[in-house]
Structure formats: C-alpha cells, structure tokens
Amino acid sequence: MDRTAVEIALGRVVLAGLVARGRTRVHVGSATAPAPMGWNRRQLVAAAVQWDMRPVGGLPEFTDRLTAVMDAAHHVGAALMVFPEDVGLCLLGLVTRYGGPRSAESLSASDASRYLSAWAPLVAPLYEECFRWAARNYGMVVVAGSSVYRRRSGVFNQAVVFGPDGRLVLRQPKLHPMPLERSWGVRPGSRLDRPGGLAMPLGIAVCHDASFFETYRMAGAQGAEVMAIPSADPDPDWSEAKARRGAWARSQETGMASVVAAGTGELYGVPFTGKAGLYIPRELSADGSGVVAESREAHGEGIVAGVLDLETLARFRQEARPAPAPELLRAWLLPRYRSLTTLT
C-alpha cells in the first residue's frame, strides 16, 4: 500500500466521523424571519457571491461565512442566491488540516484524482446540509455552487440547487469540464436539466459550460430565462476580456440574464480569480455595458445583487434575438455534432 492509499484510507475514517457528527450540528441563518421575496413573473431580485476559496479550518467557520453572505442577500430582498463552483471542496479542509496534500501541484494527476474521488464525495452530504439550511432558513432559491460527486458512471463536478423550502430540486453535472478537471478524472455530464418544481425560470451553467452557447440554448428551450453560473476560474490573471467571453457574451447572444458567482483565493495551490456579476443584453442597460451589477475587484469576498426585469427581457428576446429557423440549425449543426460523436 503506497503512502497516498494510506492517507486516503485514514482520511476516509476521519471524514466519516466528522461528517456524521457535523450534519447534526449544521445551522445556517440569523434569527431574522424570512422577508417577502423579490420575485414574481415580472422581476427577480438576484444575488451572487464572490467567495474566498480556502480549505475550512472547521465547520463553524464555514457556516458563519455562509450566514454572513446569506444575511447580506436577505437584506436586499434577494429571491435567488448563487454560490461559486467547487465551493463544496472547501470542506475538504476538515480532513486536510490533519494531514494529506497541501497543494494539487505537488501531486501527479492520477494521485490528485485519487484524493478527489475518495474524499470529495464524503463531504458532499455535509455540503448539501449546509446549503439546505441556508435555503430553508432564508426562503431563497439557492444555487449552492458545486462539489465533486461519485456516481456509478464516474466522478462529476456537480451543481446543486435548493428550493426556498430547502428541498433539493436539481443536481446538475458540469457538461464541459476543463482539461485540468478531465486530467483529474472528472467526466462530462450527459444532459442539462431544469430545477424540478421551481416556478422561477432558472437554468444552470457550471463555469466553463457558459463558454458554450449550446448550454444557454438547451436551457432556453426548457423555459429558462435566467442562468445561474457557479464559476471558479483557475487563472491567476483576471482580465475583463477573458471575463466577457463567458456568461456576459452568452447574455448578449441569447437575451437571457446571467447571474455569475465567482471563486477567488487559492484552494490547494490552485489560484482563482473572478468577479461576481449580473449581466443582461447591452441594449437593455442604461450605460450600454450589459452589466447590472459586478464586483469591483476580482479578489476577495462579498456579494452583488440587482433587479432583473424579466418582462423586458422576454420582449427583447422576441424582438431582437429571434432564433434561426429549425431546419437551418438542423442542416448546419446536426451533421457536424454527429461527426464529432463518431470521432470520439
């Protein structure tokens, strides 16, 4: 048995105990009663988190930070709160504070994959419990970012969505994992689903998924008007241009709104930069920027919030973003997607 295997086995024992005990102790939320939520068929008050990604020193540290940002969203009347991608992996700090790798850089891709696939699924129940509490206690729809899960068909980077009653309404695997994730064994999801039983017209694109217009089109065909994007960009050098080629550009193309949460800081040697933001077509914003709200800095922690005018967005899509005729799309894309599937 190599050292990695020993560490993984010990970590599993530690985590099993911590998670079982932790799940009974989770509490997220201040004493404030839920306020009337900012959401109806015409408008939605949405908030997104910029979260400093670091391994947690203990569960209370995590839930305290969660409470702080949920309080902030509650004060602005948000009905939707979006957290960043990989936020669940911060809970790996529960085991790595006792030992194990400090940096993914020091590991081979296969060892990183072993740690990730062994430990991350174990913290998933605790991660879900924290956000279930957050959704229920604040009466908000919470897109709880994502974490790594193991399923029968492999390991997935999966976003989780809770309804305002705390019910889990969607688990959405990332459809387009980054090459780094693929090297760690993360597989792409096979389909895009809508949160079940939610009246809110919400779709999910996990980080790199927003680099592909196809994700927005699939969600739009299912009735989504607002896309929640949990993101964590493993790039130490944020730039406006690189940021604008993702969710912002998809909002310009499709006329759908984007609510982007961003991971910042450093998690196991992987640096993250990014800004949380709310985006709409530039034609609908007073200054022509397409930005409703956006963090000032690509580092640090906080929330952004704004009002999305769903009625105006729907009218805009109808008038200014008509989709090409189905027969054209079938002719343009179908054979090319098919040829890709036969190649892979």
Partner: peptide, 16 residues
C-alpha cells in the same frame, strides 16, 4: 475539443 455533442444531440434546442 471541450464540446459535448452527445448532450446537444440528446437535447436538440432547435426542435423547441
């Protein structure tokens, strides 16, 4: 190379 054509073919948006 990061495209996911299998997913697009399962859920073709062009058919509404």
């Amino acid at each position: 190379r990061d495209l996911n054509p299998e997913a697009y073919l399962i859920q073709p948006w062009w058919d509404g």
